[in-house]
C-alpha cells in the first residue's frame, strides 16, 4: 500500500490486538497493565478513525461491517466496558464514541448491535451501574443515552429492577453526574411514548407512590426542581392520560402540590402551579380533592390572586391563573356532600 506510510491494520488485527491488551489489563500486574492500557488506547484511536474517518478520508462500509462482526464474535464491547475504569481519560471518550457508532449501525431495518445488546444485557446493566463510579459515570452516560434511543433496550431497562437505581443516582452529590443521570431518567420515561405510558400505568404505585414522592421531597434543591418539572411534563402528556387521572385523584398529591406552591423557591412554586392547575381543571374531581379545594377556597383564591403578579409578560400564565381563581371561587360541593351535610344537620 504505497498510499500510506504504514499500512492501517485490518479490523481483525485491531480486534485481536484490543482483546489481548484488555486481557492483560484485567489480569496483569501493574507494570504490564500500564503498557496494556497504552496499547488499548492506541488501538481505540485507530478504530475511531476507521469508524468515523479522518480529514478527507471517509469511513469504508465493508471495514466497519467487519469490525462490528469482530466485536460481536469476541464480546469486545463487554471486555471494554468491564475494563473502562483502567483506560485513560481520552481513551474512555474514544470508547464511548466507538460504542455509539457501532450501536447506530443498521442493516436495512435491523439494528444488529441492538440485538446483540439485548442478548448481552449484562453489558447495559454495567453501564447503568457506571453511575456509581465517578471515574466513568459520564462516559457510561453517553453510551446509555444512545442505548435508550432504541426501544427494545429502553424497554429492558425499564422492566429491569435496575431502573429504580436511577432514583438514587439523580440524588448523587456530584452535580454533573446526578444531572446526567436525571437526563437519562427523563429520556427513559418520555422517549418512547407508548412504552412509557404502559410502564407508568402498570407500575403506577411503585413509581409514583414508592419512589417519585421521595424526589419531590428531596433535600436537594435541584432534585426537587427537576423532578417537579418532569412530573408536570409526564402528567400533561396525553399518552399518560390514565396515569394523570390516577395522580390527580389522589388527595395526597394535591396536598403536596399545595405545599410546593409555597416553597421558598419561586421556580419551584411556578412548576408546582403547572401541576396544581391540572387538579383544578379536572372536571371529574374526586370527592376528597373537591373537599380540600373547597375547604381552602378563600385562602387559595387569595393566594392565587397574589401569586407571581410580576409575570405580566406571560399571557398564558395569567390566563390560566385567572381561570383557576374563577374555577375555585365558583366551585360547587359535590352533590353527595350536600346531602351528607344536610343529613348531618338533621341529626
Amino acid at each position: 500500500m504505497p498510499l500510506f506510510k504504514s499500512s492501517p491494520k485490518s479490523p481483525q488485527e485491531l480486534a485481536k490486538g484490543l482483546k489481548e491488551a484488555l486481557g492483560v489489563l484485567s489480569s496483569g500486574g501493574a507494570k504490564r497493565a500500564e503498557k496494556a492500557a497504552e496499547e488499548a488506547a492506541k488501538i481505540l484511536g485507530q478504530i475511531k478513525v476507521m469508524l468515523y474517518g479522518s480529514g478527507d478520508q471517509e469511513p469504508q462500509p465493508e471495514l466497519t461491517a467487519q469490525l462490528a462482526q469482530e466485536f460481536y464474535n469476541h464480546d469486545i464491547l463487554l471486555h471494554l466496558i468491564n475494563n473502562m475504569a483502567k483506560l485513560d481519560f481520552e481513551a474512555k471518550k474514544d470508547l464511548a464514541q466507538i460504542f455509539n457508532n457501532v450501536l447506530r449501525r443498521q442493516i436495512g431495518t435491523r439494528c444488529p448491535t441492538v440485538e446483540y445488546l439485548c442478548s448481552k444485557f449484562e453489558l447495559v446493566l454495567k453501564l447503568i451501574r457506571g453511575y456509581e463510579n465517578p471515574e466513568v459515570a459520564l462516559n457510561c452516560g453517553m453510551m446509555l443515552r444512545e442505548c435508550v434511543r432504541h426501544e427494545p433496550l429502553a424497554k429492558l431497562i425499564l422492566e429491569n429492577g435496575d431502573f429504580y437505581l436511577f432514583f438514587k443516582f439523580v440524588e448523587l452529590s456530584t452535580f454533573d453526574v446526578a444531572s446526567d443521570a436525571f437526563a437519562m431518567f427523563r429520556d427513559l420515561l418520555t422517549r418512547h411514548k407508548i412504552l412509557c405510558a404502559n410502564f407508568l400505568e402498570t407500575n403506577y404505585e411503585k413509581v409514583f407512590v414508592d419512589h417519585y414522592q421521595k424526589l419531590l421531597n428531596s433535600e436537594n434543591y435541584v432534585t426537587r426542581r427537576q423532578s417537579l418539572k418532569l412530573l408536570g411534563e409526564l402528567l400533561l402528556d396525553r399518552h399518560n392520560f390514565t396515569t394523570m387521572s390516577l395522580y390527580i385523584n389522589n388527595p395526597d398529591n394535591l396536598k403536596l402540590m399545595m405545599k410546593m406552591l409555597i416553597d421558598p423557591s419561586r421556580n419551584i412554586q411556578f412548576e408546582a402551579f403547572h401541576v396544581f392547575k391540572v387538579f383544578v381543571a379536572n372536571p371529574n374531581k374526586s370527592k376528597p380533592i373537591l373537599d380540600i379545594l373547597l375547604r381552602n377556597r378563600e385562602k387559595l383564591t387569595d393566594f392565587l390572586t397574589k401569586f407571581h403578579t410580576d409575570r405580566t409578560e406571560d399571557q398564558q400564565f395569567n390566563d390560566e391563573k385567572q381561570y383557576l381563581i374563577k374555577q375555585i371561587r365558583e366551585m360547587q360541593p359535590a352533590a353527595d356532600t350536600a346531602t351528607a351535610t344536610a343529613e348531618a344537620a338533621a341529626v
Binding site: 385523584n249 388527595p251 394535591l254 396536598k255 403536596l256 399545595m258 405545599k259 406552591l261 409555597i262 421558598p264 371529574n284 374531581k285 374526586s286 370527592k287 376528597p288 373537599d291 380540600i292 375547604r295 381552602n296 385562602k299 387559595l300 387569595d302 393566594f303 397574589k306 401569586f307 359535590a334 352533590a335 353527595d336 351528607a340
Partner: peptide, 27 residues
Amino acid sequence: ADEEDRENVKPSADEDAVVTSTTIPTV
C-alpha cells in the same frame, strides 16, 4: 424573612383534612 413572605400569602394544605368518603363522582 422567607417565613414572613410566606406567612402573607399562604393557603394551607390542611393536613388534618377530614377525608370521609372516597367515592368518585360518576360521570
